[in-house]
Design a protein around this nucleic acid. Structure first.
Lengths: 246, 246
DNA sequence: AGATCGAAAAGATCTAACCTATTTGTATTA
DNA sequence: TAATACAAATAGGTTAGATCTTTTCGATCT
């Protein structure tokens, strides 16, 4: 039985950050599932046994399971227990799931799939943005672009400006679900980009491409915006593949 | 204080189906948030007060909140309480969120956004499917199409076959995230379709379009597949708009 | 007066112990 | 043999209370 004494630090039962306990457990189990350590169809140990094993209360464990279940990773029923769901039920585009996936080096196939999806969605978003952008949108994009040019992509400020530029484009497309989709993918992929730039300094100047995209949106030319965004994603993919195969 | 006596049925504290209590509470609150009854920024009553109000234990209530929080609808912190998140943090493409949204007559703008996204994604998926389909994929599509022709879209069997046809196409595209995206959108939109067919019998024969799509995929012609799928989504949108404005 | 530190309060967070409901396999019975 | 009743396993749900975090507010010191 677990003893609670003041002199030992029991606040981090699992290797985790400053999250709450249920969040830590959810993350750890989520990563374990996404990395394949628990496979679809596997039955987890019973609530009591597993929560004791993890050194958390049953309540905290159950809240963690609720989180995973909300994201489609597990399903639990009385008598049967809690089992890992089939991959087709996972909400692969959930921001947390993407984050957890990238926490343990995702498969190349998955990264390719994500870029394929970006290649479908982002050019279309750029085209919509070119058709619908307001003056405020253009100002935001212009400002971000300027910041980006000043700091370069090797600094945190520069990358933040890059993000802001792309976010501004997305929001100019005026489509909630599309924004939700693209932003979570972009955020996830950005981490590999950071990782990438750590190994090799950036291989080419990204500014001309970004400026061309901006010009197309200013001009209100959807097809030009689509073309330039396609090119941007293609280059990002090329960079990422280069980083994955050093 | 709450009394538990045997002679009253307390199994459905909220108007709900056969879900577990935490699921019912999550659904009810989720619908309330998505329909705008609780607005972003609103602070929910404290755990104790709210759970008593809902006639459930604090534990069940907390598990419900974990579910909503996992989907980005709410955020809770000590001292501040639990508040409804900004709309930009909602996981609009989560299957449950879509379901809850369609439970209380979504806005026309939202439906338009969804079709816009379908129009972007599904033709691209069809093109990929045409390039990558295997013999097994073709067999599944062919069989579904046959079933669909036999039963017609006004029967449950026919609609199931239609679903199976589209699912087979998606899976032939061999892209996990793309499948997750399209299938949840399609499922949500299908409900409006069912609703639609209840009012008016189907306005035209959908089989020729479906067959053309099938032929393009059999022929391995991505561009033809893209064109025909675009047409299919366009018609679905037209039907839906007709149903929304009777 | 202003800055700094500490105590208090409010809320979620976490624990523990216990009871209930659901499901499914199995033995019993018609 | 088929329907039915029982039993066991497991998640689901309740309660009461202790703990941790964060913010606010006030007292003290400069």
């Amino acid at each position: 039985m677990r003893q609670l004494r003041g002199h030992e630090d029991i606040r981090l039962p699992l290797a985790s950050g400053s999250r709450r306990i249920h969040g830590s457990v959810a993350r750890d189990l989520g990563v374990a599932i996404l990395s394949g350590r628990y496979a679809p169809g596997d039955v987890l140990p019973g609530e009591i046994e597993f929560s004791e094993q993890l050194k958390v209360s049953r309540t905290a464990y159950r809240e963690a399971i609720r989180i995973l279940s909300a994201k489609g990773l597990v399903e639990s029923r009385p008598r049967t227990g809690t089992r890992v769901s089939q991959r087709s039920r996972w909400n692969l585009l959930d921001p947390d799931i993407l984050a957890w996936t990238f926490e343990s080096e995702p498969s190349e196939a998955f990264i390719r799939d994500l870029f394929e999806l970006r290649m479908i969605v982002e050019p279309a978003a750029a085209a919509l943005a070119a058709a619908r952008r307001s003056g405020v949108d253009l100002a935001r994009m212009g400002h971000s672009l300027e910041e980006m040019g000043r700091h370069g992509l090797s600094t945190d400020d520069g990358r933040a400006a890059d993000q802001a530029f792309h976010t501004a484009i997305l929001e100019a497309a005026r489509n909630g679900p599309l924004i939700a989709l693209s932003s979570s993918i972009a955020a996830a992929v950005t981490w590999t980009t950071i990782f990438k730039h750590r190994r090799q300094s950036l291989p080419r100047n990204p500014m001309p491409d970004h400026r061309a995209l901006y010009e197309a949106i200013v001009a209100g030319d959807p097809e030009a915006a689509r073309r330039t965004m396609t090119e941007l994603v293609r280059l990002a993919l090329a960079d990422t593949e280069l980083a994955l195969r050093p």
